[in-house]
Amino acid sequence: MLTLIKDTLTSQVVTLWRVFSHLWVKADTVEYPDVQPYMFPRWRGRIILSRDPDGEERCVACNLCAVACPVDCIALQKTEDEEGRWYPEFFRINFSRCIMCGFCEEACPTNAIQLTPDFEMAEYKRQDMVWEKEDLLIDGTGKYHDYNFYSVAGKKIAGKDKGEALNEAVPVNVRSLLP
């Protein structure tokens, strides 16, 4: 009984002292609006649509990101220009539903859609959280500087015929193999 009381008392007093001694430990708080925290390059924040090194839109409107998105917050419509390149007629992300999971970036075959370290996206009106293609599209290449989908893809566009892409063999003429 006496040892129990003694142990209880000492443990309480030690606890009090330990907590008190935190008074001269520097606070961990980052005073955010005054001090910007370091954001890691791979942070999953505001979504952008990037361009390829030639300055063309990377997105080919394949809809894979919209399918991968667990909250269905991406909407887009495919269209085609006269060169035969596919691009989205509109591309809309509803950021009030986006959970910044990054699945869209994983799914994208062209590295078009990318997440960035920016997280300051608060708005006063919910409607302002819906971003259109003009808001999403940036002028640079984002995280992948050299990648150009059409230069490696087999799709024929103006100025690049079948078989002219990088690492692509000339198509086999099956008829010429006839005896």
Binding site: V19, F20, H22, L23, V25, K26, A27, D28, T29, E31
Partner: peptide, 8 residues
């Protein structure tokens, strides 16, 4: 409280 919990 926050000083004792290393906050501000």
């Amino acid at each position: 409280l926050s000083f004792w919990q290393e906050r501000l």
